[in-house]
Simulated scan of single mutants.
Amino acid sequence: MKQHPNITGLILAGGQSRRMGTNKALLEVNGQTLVERAIERLHPQVTQLLVSTNVPLELPANIPQLADTLDDAGPLAGVFTGLLWLQKRQRKCSQQRQRQHKQRHQVPPASAWLLTVAVDTPLFPQDLPQQLWEHASTNRDRLKIIAACSGKREHPTFALWHTDLIPALSEYLVEKQQRRLMTFIGQQSHRYVDFSTAQAHLESVGLGAGDPFDNINDPPALLRLAKRLQCERPLTQPVKVPV
């Protein structure tokens, strides 16, 4: 039987939002904030949910909020903090398994993969981790980053990241003081998965034309999103979560 890992999801909500002039995570669309929408959309797809934010948010207590360990380092700071959290969880699970070696099945191993999504992109695919995993099966044991693209547009904040990246990220961010997300990905073993066909799903649930990874950068984009979401219909079947 084909094995899939449990996946931890991280919502990147720590940006400064200079163009919007306010915290994007707290922007409301049809009575719901963008971070609430991201949680609602991602929660069924992952086994553990985290939020990367430098401003404490009013969220359920079972959703850890992670502040960046580095200042002014962009999305990679959130990725780095999330991977450190996941590595700590891996070690804790390993210690538990050692203590309960006679009942090892009761403490499943923690996944080495972290899924990231951007809080300002509320229409991302509702089967994102499953599709990233399944469509990047070749040489997956050697890949460290599996990211999304649609057509000719790359969307690196929507990606699976392996905890093996921690030393390289530390060197890139701390020692070299580099910040460019695309440059770092290019230096690692990676693959992009094309989500162009996800447009068909948006149309099927009444959201019309548009890239599923379109993000909110200004007030007009927020108004366009509100109009699209008024027409959204729910999925006819639940999303399958990797187990």
Rank of each mutant, 00 (worst) to 15 (best):
L207S: 11
R153E: 05
A148K: 00
Q178L: 12
R153S: 05
Q199M: 13
A200I: 10
H135M: 14
T157H: 05
Y192E: 05
C149Q: 11
D141T: 01
Y192P: 08
A147I: 01
F184D: 01
E154S: 07
S150F: 03
S196R: 06
K144H: 15
V174I: 14
Q188V: 03
Q177D: 06
Q177V: 10
I185Q: 02
Q178S: 08
D211Y: 04
I166E: 09
T197C: 06
I185V: 07
D211P: 07
D164K: 12
Q187D: 05
Q188I: 01
L173V: 00
M182L: 15
E171A: 14
A147P: 07
A209E: 14
L169S: 04
G210I: 12
P167Q: 09
L173I: 00
T157M: 04
D141N: 13
I185G: 00
K176L: 15
A159R: 08
T197A: 14
E203V: 12
G151M: 03
L173C: 06
E134C: 08
K144W: 12
R140P: 09
N215H: 15
Q131H: 15
H162L: 02
A168M: 00
K152S: 12
Y172K: 03
S189M: 09
S150P: 00
A147V: 07
S189G: 01
D214Y: 11
R191Q: 14
E171F: 12
A136F: 08
Q130G: 14
R191G: 07
H135V: 00
G208E: 06
Q187M: 11
A147H: 01
I166A: 02
Y172C: 07
T138L: 15
G208Y: 02
T163F: 10
A147M: 11
V174S: 01
R140F: 12
E134L: 15
A168T: 09
G151L: 06
A209M: 12
Y172V: 06
F158L: 10
F213D: 11
S189W: 10
C149S: 04
G206L: 00
H162S: 03
Q188E: 09
D214W: 12
V205C: 15
R191V: 13
S137K: 08
F158R: 01
L160P: 06
A168N: 05
R179Y: 13
T163K: 02
R140C: 07
H135E: 15
I146T: 05
L173N: 02
Q177F: 11
D194P: 00
D194W: 11
D214G: 00
A147T: 02
H201G: 09
P129V: 07
G206D: 07
A159M: 03
A198Y: 03
I166F: 04
Y192N: 01
E154P: 07
G151A: 07
D164G: 08
A198I: 01
I185N: 00
D211R: 02
L181A: 03
A200P: 02
A136I: 12
L207P: 08
H155T: 06
G186V: 12
D211G: 11
P212E: 13
R153K: 05
I166Q: 01
P129C: 00
V174E: 07
P212N: 13
L132G: 11
R191I: 14
G210H: 01
L132I: 11
K152H: 05
K152L: 06
Q188K: 02
I146G: 09
A200Q: 02
S189P: 04
H135W: 06
E171L: 13
N215I: 10
I166L: 02
